[in-house]
Nucleic acid binder design. Structure first.
Lengths: 257, 257
DNA sequence: GGTCGATGGATTGTCGACAATATGACATCC
DNA sequence: GGATGTCATATTGTCGACAATCCATCGACC
């Protein structure tokens, strides 16, 4: 166990790469936390100097963190005008869920073809923890489990760019779930049962049925969200009604030359 | 409400917002240009100091530009190790096109429902310019027209987050097209005819048929790409074979506190 | 009276210097 | 001889100061 031990570990993928965290990652986490939990209200203007003073870091990591959150869609960044927490309008919910339906169909299809036995057992474990979670855990932990399950599906798809797209949606979905669970305490949604069935359908390589299941699952989640959401949406802070159109997108207007 | 002249202009959408460009945008453009045209080879290590000296700007905008390109997927950013130009492996082509098929189906479906007459006429104009372009224009201009057409489709879908996903693909597709057109000079692909037909099908609100057309169109593009691409792929500079998995993705692990 | 132009204050964009970190080569030990 | 520990070097991450820009307010003018 001296010569080839490291090789065994590496090739067996038993170890996962350690994440290199820098200050901007830490700052981004705190800000994301504050946004999804609602401590930072939609419409609120985040000032670099304020945040950097509160967190006792320089403005540079704060700036980088803003950029990260901007790419996740949690804040809108406008030139020379800073970052503004984006809202949770019904249109946002619709955008996120129409896109998610497209992405997750692809993810399920790929995951069926590529998921390893380890992937499947991890998925089963999470699915099994959801029912007890619905009864015993906090709204937050329940939302975390839900998002973690779907995150595993995307990971099992082994498609880096697809996963990057999912990253843009994940924080929003977590925010949606959390807000709904907090507003509507009987959040024992029927959804968690569908997770377990989905795993088994995927394990059985029944692509057709799995696609139909994920479609129904997401449609249901969307419907539940909209139902409990039409009212609590309008708790924004000041009058910043979601900037005009797609102005919020930072100037990523691509290879236009 | 205040019924003034400017409201009329805004509501008619006759004017498009002027893009606020800062230095990092400019730097990102130059770097993207160098990457897609192949002046920066896959595997090449981009040093902040080098670029900032060459462009005579500070390291800050260069750093921001790296982040932008990282989100577009043109470079891989690793902690304390800088940016590396990503490769054009067959797997990359496959990833981009499987994802694109998913996204563009949604885009076409939405565009059929939401496209304005102005959108359609702009699409027609671009589609009409492609045949002559195939004969008279440079490979680059032809690739630009192709990308611009599909970009308009995504814009017509009026879906900010979908458009953001497309942004992650666009540069890659442009790079693919350009490389193929340069390697294979008789690039008068049959694709441009399909653009015109797609527009009319969309204008006729024939969703079913339009979806089938875009599927066939993209499959054809993918096939042509792979055929002319299996060889010229391996022109990378040094041995940096596409970093391990998704290490480049920053730790946006949802809500871990 | 309403529109247009100037000014002040606040906030972001950019810069150059310093500190922290990863990497590869070298020497050392078993 | 092979593996391990140490160190120098190159490169990125962070910082604080300055410059450029935007927004709101106020005053002048038609």
């Amino acid at each position: 166990m001296t010569s080839t031990v490291s090789d065994d570990f590496n090739e067996a993928k038993a170890l996962t790469a350690v994440p290199h965290r820098v200050l901007s990652d830490e700052v981004a986490d705190r800000l994301r936390e504050a946004i999804v939990t609602g401590r930072f209200k939609p419409g609120q203007h985040l000032r670099e100097a304020e945040i950097s003073a509160a967190l006792q870091v320089s403005r540079s990591p704060v700036r980088d963190a803003f950029a990260q959150l901007g790419h996740e869609g949690l804040v809108a960044i406008r030139s020379h005008r800073g970052a503004i927490v984006v809202g949770l309008t019904a249109q946002d919910v619709e955008e996120v869920y129409t896109l998610r339906a497209s992405l997750e169909s692809l993810a399920v299809r790929l995951a069926i073809a590529r998921a390893t036995p380890e992937d499947l057992s991890r998925l089963r474990e999470l699915a099994n923890r959801m029912p007890e979670a619905a009864a015993r855990l906090s709204p937050r932990e329940y939302a975390e489990l839900d998002v973690a399950f779907h995150d595993l599906v995307y990971q099992a798809a082994r498609h880096d760019r697809l996963y990057a797209c999912w990253t843009m949606l994940r924080s929003h979905i977590f925010r949606f779930l959390l807000t709904r669970n907090l507003v509507n305490p009987d959040f024992s949604e029927v959804g968690h049962r569908e997770h377990g069935e989905l795993v088994e359908t995927m394990a059985a390589h029944d692509t057709e049925r799995a696609l139909e299941m994920i479609r129904v699952h997401l449609e249901g989640a969307y419907a539940r969200l909209i139902k409990g959401y039409v009212e609590p949406l309008d708790q924004r802070a000041d009058g910043a009604p979601r900037g005009p159109g797609s102005d919020s997108r930072t100037g990523v207007d691509g290879s236009g030359e």
